[in-house]
Design a protein around this nucleic acid. Structure first.
Lengths: 176, 176
DNA sequence: TATTGTTATACTCTATAACTATA
DNA sequence: TATAGTTATAGAGTATAACAATA
């Protein structure tokens, strides 16, 4: 595999702002190489969002380790599993990508033997997507790993904070 | 311009969870077409993160409208402005991308007349990146637009909630 | 010998436009 | 006429490997 999506042109390091918890901690290691001035970036939600996104993506890859699958592919597998008979176009508009883009997405999942393009009973133009037995087994195997990954990413947040984070993120999503 | 990065294979719609604020609102419009079952996705931080990311990215594009620039390019311009004389390699490691990738990033910004590859005074192997006058003017023009964009994205969060969101995101970034 | 920028190569994600088969 | 899947084409973003110039 070539690349391995890492970060993006957004800035990586971050100066420690906010959170005065555990005041009396003896200034433990905080050796993330800052050095660079970040200007207004640390105040932007998009900037923090992007950094968190990168961290989550990379940890996901490790968490599902033996399997080579991206968070996006996992999402598609879940949607197919939860909505049997979905067509490519429906799936595409659900995840917000063009149907021409969805072709290659399904191609990859199909060539790995996880997804089947079954004929749609009603409409001969479209497929009824479904998981193969291997795809079903894969998802079963992935779910506990993904849950463990989730616990890792949220390990410094208590239950309430996790719920708050998701709620705040959802409100940002709806704000645009 | 071709594509216009929109979303990704992660799932778009979302069922309304949490937040019982304003109980007596008469069930206003909430017509985001759900229909699809999302399984465990809405419980995953990565899923909400991705949706928020997409919303922010798209709104950013609108907010800087006359200019065609991505959040990532904006971030790079800010870093160059705040750290004059930065080399491509330093910039690359700051934003977490390979120096070979940074070449094309700077190529684009340079071809648009915003960034200059000035000779480094100390090291003849590297460049001292700086903004051109046009690049400086661009950034000056962008900053208020980006701040307005930020207000749009955070319009349903009060000041405290915004700070909490950024803090929680930073903690997630550090968790991996 | 190590580092900086570069090029060659490759792969994913994304889009638009046009085509085929079907509705 | 409209829709589902497809292909052709294009561009951004990402990586690794190798090379030249310089340290």
């Amino acid at each position: 595999m070539p690349y391995r999506a890492s970060s993006l042109t957004e800035g990586q390091t971050l100066p420690d702002t906010a959170r005065e918890t555990t005041l009396k901690r003896p200034r433990a290691r905080d050796n993330r190489q800052p050095k660079l001035a970040l200007g207004l970036l640390p105040d932007l939600i998009g900037y923090s969002l992007r950094k968190a996104q990168i961290a989550v993506f990379q940890n996901f890859q490790n968490a599902v380790a033996p399997h080579d699958i991206t968070p996006g592919q996992f999402g598609v597998l879940i949607l197919i599993r939860e909505n049997v008979g979905l067509s490519q176009s429906e799936l595409g508009s659900a995840v917000g990508i063009d149907r021409s883009t969805m072709v290659a997405v399904i191609d990859r999942l199909e060539s790995r033997g996880w997804v089947v393009r079954a004929p749609s009973p009603n409409d001969r133009r479209s497929y009824a997507l479904e998981l193969s037995p291997a795809g079903t087994a894969l998802v079963e195997d992935l779910i506990p790993r993904v849950r463990a990954h989730e616990r890792t990413m949220a390990k410094d947040l208590n239950k309430q904070e996790q719920a708050i984070l998701i709620d705040l993120l959802n409100r940002v999503s709806r704000a645009s």
